[in-house]
Design a protein around this nucleic acid. Structure first.
Lengths: 396, 396
DNA sequence: GCAATTTGTTTCAGGGTGAAACCAAAGGGG
DNA sequence: CCCCTTTGGTTTCACCCTGAAACAAATTGC
């Protein structure tokens, strides 16, 4: 494996184009990478010797001339797993390295168990979905700040038992392959950037308003993790008597409504009641939320000058009617305001983002840059939204 | 010049160490870069053939053995110029490529001239300071947002005639060499990162409170320019009845004091009067400023999780007594708050930062990464603060 | 003057590449 | 049916770059 510098780069280029194209001939790879036929042949020989590439049958070429042999990545039976571990629900997504969905599931999170119990539960479901082929990489998004270096978890209001490194330690013994953790909002943004509302934009922000309030940031195509994973916690900024999180998040809005004497169950009720001409108290809560959202978007805009800001999370769909007004407000603050869009992936965004992370980990282990996953991810999304909830793992 | 890939890298490595060490022998370069003697000799031959390196006299080596020949960068007579073009004063700094100060000056900005007039004035001073050796690169920091791609200038409240590309176009005809523009706060942060309060920190923020309010950001050692150069305009965030800029900047504080009926000339008077037990009106202005500064620092912290936040600008020294309280407030918001420090370079920070930019441009033209300038920059700073204001250009 | 020591150059083997010559296999026309 | 054309893949060769080692050069100390 200890190849020279040039060799590593060429191996990576060949593998990358093979991943992107699925199957290709040697000359096609040469044309695509700019390498000579000789070099491609040599590199492919080496890769086949290493067991990373295998020769498939003849390619269905139309014209005259010798029939080309298709090359494919060996080990397409390897799979990766993306998990979105939420406070109430957890999504699992298993695909092979080519992005073909093998299985997926959506389950209620057993939030009353301790870290080891949740780890066992996760490992059990992953095992059931992957069958006999253990995933080469598993990425898990969870509702807390994840330290980029150590992977330690902090600030998990919904699942406080996951604080620290307990989950990682327990899962390390239960799963093989690479194991990666990330904040759930970061994961969701990765999903939106790959195949959703931020597709094609290198600099994007996801504002996630659910029970709490969070934001994730991509700059020039790369996530901005921060020193301790706490980037984007704009919710702590003061606003009025409280904070932005108090005003915008579902939890905060419900609290405020109750303080004003309105017995509401969740944020959706507030929006619904206000639409039906309910009392001024609820309307005031919404006015405050809209105003605070404007402040948040302004802060995000001046902080990063993103090309697009995606509004996600459980409360976000209710923000729809405010978008024109918010866009106008942003245009007054900056000459080139960001695009303001609702989430395109919705709830599965986090699982898709984690799945991308897992794929990335595998590709990185092969020294290959991640190819564009947009098309594949869109297919994956269709699986997750249209088909039957449970797809049992089936051998190829 | 069309060397291969490996050759380019080795040329860059050799040039880089030559720049960092000033003068060195072939073997010393080999030890420092990890290259073999043979390779260093070959690369040096090529560089001498290209006229980039020349052989100096014998090196003063003590021990026995053959006397080593010193290698120096040819064209050490080349100079670069950094300029901080402010609303009232302008600083010029000229050094050779080794960082030795050739000349510097501090002049009143002729703010009543148009863009062409200011360009002519700048070119005149630069010409006087550089004499017959035209600068290889000139970098100019100015109080406005500079578009990273086009170099177009926007939002220059102090010097509105510089809006657009007029200054660049006028100067292009008057100066030879590379010409770079940047926001003055960005330049000052570059200075602080190179040799000031943010030295050694890859992720740093400079909050500049002067007539206006601005911020500049470095992430992982690189500036964050944003799409249109507008990153860091946190002053537009609403706070109380106005904005953060209204509350924190010198201009805003004076305006607020006058609204309350106090005839003050500048922000310093407000601080002085309050210290002498003046009326509650001025005290309220200061209380609001302190509170707004806390909000600003919180926003900066959650946006970037910087290792250090530097407070600069004309008003910043007055913030000194507030630092302990601000640190405590930040510690409540985040588990690992950034360091909070006053500017170490003060007013010359912008000129030093622009000078670093100019040096960088020259090095980049030679495919060389900028070596650590900390030591050199500290020497430069001593010149700018201790010696006589005017050092006429003197030939070596 | 001669050994010791350090600097710089030359030589040589090794790894890597692309261009081109060279086999191999398919289709098509007389 | 044979041969020609066309395309895919391999082998050969010249070239570039590097590091290790042998070698030449210069300087100190005895």
């Amino acid at each position: 494996m200890e190849s020279s510098d040039a060799r590593r780069a060429n191996r990576a280029a060949v593998l990358g184009h093979l991943l992107a194209l699925g199957a290709a001939t040697r000359v096609a790879i040469g044309r695509a990478t700019g390498l000579s036929k000789a070099t491609v042949s040599r590199v492919v020989d080496e890769l086949m010797h290493d067991g990373l590439v295998r020769e498939g049958g003849p390619m269905s070429g139309g014209g005259p001339g010798r029939q080309a042999l298709a090359l494919r990545l060996a080990g397409e039976d390897r799979v990766v797993c993306g998990v979105d571990l939420g406070g109430t629900h957890t999504r699992f997504l298993v695909t092979d390295l080519g992005g073909r969905v093998r299985a997926w599931a959506r389950e209620s999170t057993p939030h009353d168990r301790d870290a080891a119990g949740i780890a066992a539960w996760l490992a059990g479901h992953i095992g059931a979905l992957t069958g006999d082929t253990a995933p080469s990489a598993t990425a898990i998004g969870l509702p807390g700040a994840v330290h980029p270096g150590t992977g330690a978890v902090r600030t998990v209001p919904n699942l406080p038992q996951l604080e620290g490194t307990a989950l990682r330690e327990a899962l390390d013994g239960l799963l093989t392959g690479v194991l990666a953790f990330d904040n759930d909002v970061n994961a969701a943004l990765r999903g939106e950037v790959t195949a959703g509302a931020a597709r094609g934009h290198g600099t994007a922000v996801l504002v996630a308003a659910g029970t709490g309030l969070g934001a994730a940031v991509h700059l020039d195509g790369r996530p901005l993790p921060g020193r301790t994973g706490g980037v984007g916690e704009f919710g702590v900024l003061p606003h009025g008597a409280g904070t932005l999180e108090d005003a915008i998040s579902g939890g905060g809005m419900v609290r405020r409504a109750r303080e004003r004497g309105h017995a509401v169950g969740d944020a959706a009720e507030i929006f619904a009641a206000a639409a039906n001409g309910a009392g001024t108290g609820l309307r005031a809560v919404l006015d405050e939320a809209r105003e605070a959202l404007g402040v948040l978007l302004t802060a995000v805009t001046v902080a990063y000058e993103p090309e697009v800001v995606v509004l996600g999370g459980g409360v976000a769909p209710a923000f729809g009617p405010w978008l024109p007004g918010l866009r106008a407000a942003l245009a007054e603050v900056t000459p080139r305001p960001p695009l303001l869009r609702p989430s395109a992936l919705g709830d599965p965004a986090g699982a898709i983002g984690s799945w991308v992370t897992a794929l990335q980990a595998v590709y990185q282990g092969m020294d290959v840059a991640l190819p564009d996953l947009g098309g594949v991810a869109t297919t994956v999304l269709k699986h997750l939204t249209k088909e039957d909830p449970h797809v049992p793992a089936s051998p190829a």
